[in-house]
Simulated scan of single mutants.
Amino acid sequence: MNSIKLIFMLIILVLALLGGASSKRCQFPAIYNFGDSNSDTGGISASMSPVNPPYGETFFGHPAGRFCDGRLIIDFIAENLKLPYLSAYLDSIGTNFRHGANFATGGSSIRPGGYSPFHLAIQITQFIQFKSRTVALYNKLSSNRTASPLKGILPRPSDFSKALYTIDIGQNDLAYGFQHTDEENVRASIPDILNQFSQAVHQLYKEGARFFWIHNTGPIGCLPYSVIYDKLKPANLDQSGCVKPQNEIAQEFNRRLKNKISQLRQQLPHAAITHVDLYSVKYALISNAKNQGFVEPMNFCCGSYYRYHINCGNEAIVNGTVYGNPCHHPSRHISWDGIHYSQAANLWVANHILKGSFSDPSISIDQVCFHPTNM
Score class of each variant (00 low, 15 high):
155 P>V: 06
126 Q>D: 15
155 P>R: 06
199 Q>V: 08
171 Q>H: 02
136 A>G: 00
203 Q>D: 12
164 L>H: 08
148 S>R: 08
188 A>W: 00
168 D>H: 08
180 H>G: 01
156 R>D: 14
123 Q>E: 13
143 S>M: 10
205 Y>C: 09
169 I>G: 03
161 S>F: 04
180 H>A: 00
136 A>D: 14
161 S>T: 14
168 D>T: 14
131 K>D: 07
192 D>M: 08
181 T>N: 06
138 Y>W: 14
174 L>A: 01
134 T>Y: 10
192 D>L: 14
211 F>K: 11
146 T>R: 12
194 L>W: 09
131 K>R: 13
172 N>F: 09
188 A>Y: 03
154 L>C: 03
154 L>W: 04
139 N>H: 04
176 Y>A: 12
153 I>R: 11
152 G>W: 08
194 L>N: 11
199 Q>G: 01
171 Q>I: 14
189 S>C: 01
121 A>W: 01
201 V>D: 06
155 P>T: 05
214 I>P: 11
138 Y>Q: 05
165 Y>K: 05
200 A>Y: 11
121 A>S: 15
208 G>L: 14
147 A>K: 08
181 T>R: 11
153 I>L: 05
200 A>M: 10
156 R>T: 04
206 K>E: 15
197 F>T: 12
131 K>W: 09
141 L>G: 04
140 K>W: 12
125 T>E: 09
178 F>T: 04
189 S>D: 10
202 H>K: 06
136 A>Q: 13
128 I>Y: 03
200 A>T: 09
155 P>D: 05
166 T>W: 01
130 F>V: 06
149 P>C: 13
138 Y>E: 12
166 T>E: 09
198 S>N: 07
186 V>F: 11
178 F>V: 14
126 Q>R: 09
208 G>M: 11
157 P>A: 05
136 A>W: 00
173 D>C: 02
203 Q>A: 13
135 V>I: 15
133 R>I: 14
183 E>G: 08
144 N>T: 14
176 Y>G: 02
127 F>A: 01
147 A>Y: 13
212 F>I: 12
177 G>D: 04
184 E>K: 07
177 G>P: 11
211 F>N: 09
200 A>W: 10
206 K>P: 00
214 I>W: 09
179 Q>A: 15
146 T>E: 08
132 S>P: 00
190 I>H: 09
182 D>P: 10
162 K>S: 10
138 Y>G: 03
171 Q>K: 00
202 H>R: 10
150 L>F: 11
174 L>C: 01
197 F>E: 09
123 Q>V: 04
187 R>H: 13
190 I>F: 13
139 N>Q: 15
138 Y>S: 10
132 S>L: 08
120 L>Q: 02
206 K>F: 11
127 F>L: 09
163 A>S: 14
173 D>W: 03
135 V>K: 02
192 D>K: 12
124 I>S: 02
186 V>Q: 13
169 I>S: 00
178 F>R: 07
168 D>C: 10
130 F>Y: 13
135 V>Y: 01
125 T>W: 02
199 Q>S: 13
185 N>D: 04
204 L>P: 03
128 I>R: 10
201 V>P: 05
197 F>Q: 05
185 N>I: 00
161 S>C: 03
186 V>K: 07
194 L>M: 12
148 S>P: 03
191 P>A: 06
133 R>M: 11
165 Y>A: 02
195 N>Y: 12
207 E>L: 06
194 L>R: 08
183 E>K: 08
205 Y>N: 11
166 T>I: 06
167 I>V: 15
